[in-house]
């Protein structure tokens, strides 16, 4: 019986950590996107990911032509 209780407790801790981790990752992603957006508005260099995306858009544009 103690074992089961212990396992339940451990499970709850792990679930809580899983929740905290997802929450933190979502926060970082949101924050990074917002900063990227602000950089774009200010006409500053965007990061690599953005450059790659911009190039892709350009390529797509050419295909349409």
């Amino acid at each position: 019986q103690d074992r089961i209780e212990e396992d339940k407790e451990k499970g709850a801790i792990v679930d809580e950590r899983r929740r905290l981790l997802s929450e933190w990752m979502a926060y970082l992603q949101r924050e990074r996107e917002e900063v990227r957006e602000e950089r774009r508005e200010l006409g500053l260099d965007v990061d690599e990911e953005d450059k790659a995306r911009a190039e892709e858009v350009e390529k797509d544009g050419k295909v349409v032509e």
């Binding site: 792990v14 950590r17 899983r18 981790l21 933190w24 990752m25 970082l28």
Partner: peptide
């Protein structure tokens, strides 16, 4: 690393 970080693998490389 915590077990839950390991579960996330690559995704949790940059926290």
């Amino acid at each position: 690393q915590y077990e839950v970080e390991r579960e996330k693998g690559e995704e949790s490389a940059d926290l």
